[in-house]
Design a protein around this nucleic acid. Sequence first.
RNA 1: GGUCGGAUGGCCGAGUGGCUAGGCAGAGCUCUGCAAAAGCUCCUACAGCGGUUCGAAUCCGCUUCCGACCUCCA
Length: 493
Amino acid sequence: MNPQPLHLHNTLSRNKERFAPQNPPLVGLYVCGPTVYGEAHLGHARPYLTFDVLVRYLSHQGYRVRYVRNITDVGHLEHDADEGEDKIASKARLEQLEPMEIAELYTRSFHASMRALNILPPNIEPRASGHIPEQLQMIEELIECGYAYESAGSVYFDVATYATRYPYGQLSGRVSDELQAGAGNERRALEGQSEKRNPADFALWKKAQPTHIMRWSSPWSEGFPGWHIECSAMSRKYLGEPFDIHGGGMDLLFPHHESEIAQSQACCGQVPARLWMHNNMVTIDGQKMGKSLGNFITLNELFTGNHPRLSQPFDPMVIRFFVLQAHYRSTLDFSSEALQAAEKGYKRFMDGVGVLMQLKSDAATDDFEVDPLISMLYEALNDDLNTPMLIARLYEFLPQIHRMHEGKANLSAPSLSRLQQEVQMLVNNVLGLNTPERKTDIHLEGVMELLLEIRQQAKERRDFASSDEIRMRLESLGIQIKDGKDKSEWSLI
RNA sequence: GGUCGGAUGGCCGAGUGGCUAGGCAGAGCUCUGCAAAAGCUCCUACAGCGGUUCGAAUCCGCUUCCGACCUCCA
């Protein structure tokens, strides 16, 4: 069935590598989750969609995936914050809510958006706030090994010492030389720099300012964990080390993932994950869609159409289709027009798939070969999860489906049923595209049948005024009539 | 300044050293009382300049432009 095995691009080697988990059929996957201090936007959806397809495909291939995706709810520095102010704490004062209330609110909103996009929940969704002991433990280990030091109540990772034994910067291709510290024209004035031995050092534990609401006690100070340690601690707890795949957005490559590698390597002597996958950014007007740039469109705004850049609401499945029509390692440029194009394409695509599913066969022989076709579909996925290629090949097959529908081509019952199963599997289970069945109650069915019958009679006596009025008024009620050759069909808009 | 990645037809987006991805838009046609939908057909692009090659959008070099990252951003 699968002509060639699954290959995935590994950021660590910058090559496509054959996917081979350490302990098949088990696969350990960790993906960096959201920081829950704001509404999730389209940019956030991309990694979760990408890795959703990965998880679905791996499961489809018979792997048993343990998918861990964290919730960052301990709060980190605001981009423009003055003095190490906690993101969540600062928002809390604005809204007069408890920090954890905010985290909870946005966590729920995030979950709702993920559900709408048909993104399967991870197997474990650990919260950083629920894993403070694990993080403290890891920090202590790092201090014991001599890779971390305390300074004014905070604890920092000692990059210089680390770099004497391990290659720092192997993931991002960055050199750990002095060069980078002094380079750059507009270095940001960062809080806590003076406490560090080296500008490249990063925080494992931060002492909380008096204004800082979210805080936990530790051997060093009342404070909160550094940004990178939660992922290291939680992935180690639930997946062990090394685990198979670590994923996230490309913007996390440095410093986040580089730091994770350093922490784990210093602690456990090895790079935490064997395969590192990074999705590219969603752009808008050629620029990264991001919180700090303020150019983002939230998922809820997309679903409701409530944004100046949007001409209409978009079905979550259209968003999903739109994202999957680009390869995950390419940037994807957002525009309302592009989404509208995706919407139309999606409808035609799913209609075609629907026609295929309805087909029945009474033919004895095949007019074309099914196997090569199916192989082509899998080849696309196996080549680094090339969903746009998979979708394009399914599109190319659409005319053949219609030919069969018109009786111009035939497949034997076994071949047809195999094709139907495979396509359904790929479209629904792997790509995760579903047209939810519109629930129509039995009364409406009957009423519509009656109405269409009356309209048909009107048409037969060439009373087009009446038949057109019925069609028009139904349309204003949200019911669309399509006249076929000898009967009409109706559907909810 | 450094590291990395891009530049593909009106728009969105794949891709391979030779065989015109695909979608949307546009044009024409078929079907049709009219619509709608659907189907068929057409629209042959790869930033620029060199080089390698029998052949390059695809490999190499240079140029221009764009983006991501450079310590808490998916």
